[in-house]
Design a binder for these strands. Structure first.
Lengths: 205, 205
DNA sequence: GTCATTTTATGCGAAACAGTACAAATGTCC
DNA sequence: GGACATTTGTACTGTTTCGCATAAAATGAC
């Protein structure tokens, strides 16, 4: 993007790597319980460097959320490859989600947005807005695939793509919550399978 | 329960009312962002009274979670009255859930367990345990109703009560998250309706 | 080489935080 | 009425918090 070398002392760290480390801290502890000391230790950056690169704690959190959202959208789009059957698409979506949700050093971390942005959403309007937009974007991406399925005959014409997409998302939301609540991988995979079955099976009439 | 008057100065407040006020603070801000000053102001209790009645902030939070869990189970049990059709039962469950989730002074608060206990669940083992147990209890209560429906012929015999119960819960989890993310009542009610339809409609074969 | 510009390191400071000590208040028990 | 037990109000302590001030380090421009 920008290879133009700026004047002054060059940055001694990779901003994206630091953002990922900060994201992990927020993911484990949430926004409020994550201190700048935690963030500083995890990123190996002292506070002035953090402030210089990202602004204050709130800006850093919002940037971490945004990066997470974009990564998630990428995973989702790849899983929804329309050259594969809808059933496989949904299975891939859930498998991809579980791979993310079940990761974690202490315990499964679930979804960064659902499990940490939700708390702040009441008092913190910008977080609520990011969370709402993210959920809608996910719905929209699945809806696009559902629309294709309805047109190609994979789904009954009577099926409503938006409704089915929201229900497909609902299963994913539940997986996120249950993962963080400590449910086993086996349980979560069973829920994912039955979700695929219910959504893809029911609309064949 | 205990009408035996204890010696010493009697308590000048209703512990349950105070617990409800504290619960509301936790509900809006989450555990970490809720300060003892917030809790003290909301309950009209000074800190020593709070500590005397509930213990430290963590114990107060756990007690609020437990009370919320019991209240929710009560609402759920009443909604699942087996003398009504399963369809009506699920609709009542979701209506009851939305009545709780959409309440809030600043913005919709969603579910106390899903939206505030989730954050703490990674680092705080006892919270994770309460959250997991609560979700399972909810599943179990719905599963009981599904089992009745399967035996009475309301559902196809091939339907698996546990699986259907988990999917019914999944819709509820999604409603909780989406409410806190700012989705409109209309949207949430539409999702609830389609959830009922999918779960009750698909298994009639 | 010297200056300008940006990043890094140390550490400060004011505010918020959780939890408690202490004494005054208010009741029961004998 | 007096001893005892518990709650309540005020104020405190030590810690943690965030954000920044200041100065040293490292580079480009000239």
């Amino acid at each position: 993007m920008k290879d133009e070398k700026k004047r002054g002392r060059p940055r001694g760290f990779d901003a994206r790597a630091a953002l990922d480390k900060a994201r992990d801290v927020f993911w484990d502890r949430g926004f409020s319980a994550a201190s700048l000391d935690n963030l500083s230790a995890a990123t190996n950056l002292n506070r002035p460097s953090l402030y210089g690169a990202f602004g204050d704690k709130e800006a850093l959190y919002l940037e971490a959320l945004e990066a997470y959202r974009q990564d998630g959208m990428e995973v989702l789009k790849q899983a929804l490859d329309p050259s594969l059957p809808l059933r496989d698409n949904l299975a891939r979506v859930y498998a991809g989600a579980l791979a993310i949700y079940l990761h974690g050093e202490i315990a499964a971390r679930g979804c960064l947005l659902i499990s940490t942005a939700s708390v702040e959403a009441v008092e913190h309007e910008r977080v609520r807005e990011v969370l709402g937009r993210s959920l809608n974007d996910f719905d929209g991406e699945i809806e696009k695939r559902m629309r294709i399925a309805a047109e190609s005959g994979e789904l009954a014409e009577s099926a409503d793509p938006l409704t089915l997409a929201r229900l497909a998302s609902a299963v994913m939301h539940s997986l996120a919550v249950r993962a963080r609540a400590g449910d086993s991988r086996e349980t979560l995979e069973a829920i994912a399978r039955s979700g695929v079955e219910l959504i893809c099976g029911s609309t064949h009439v």
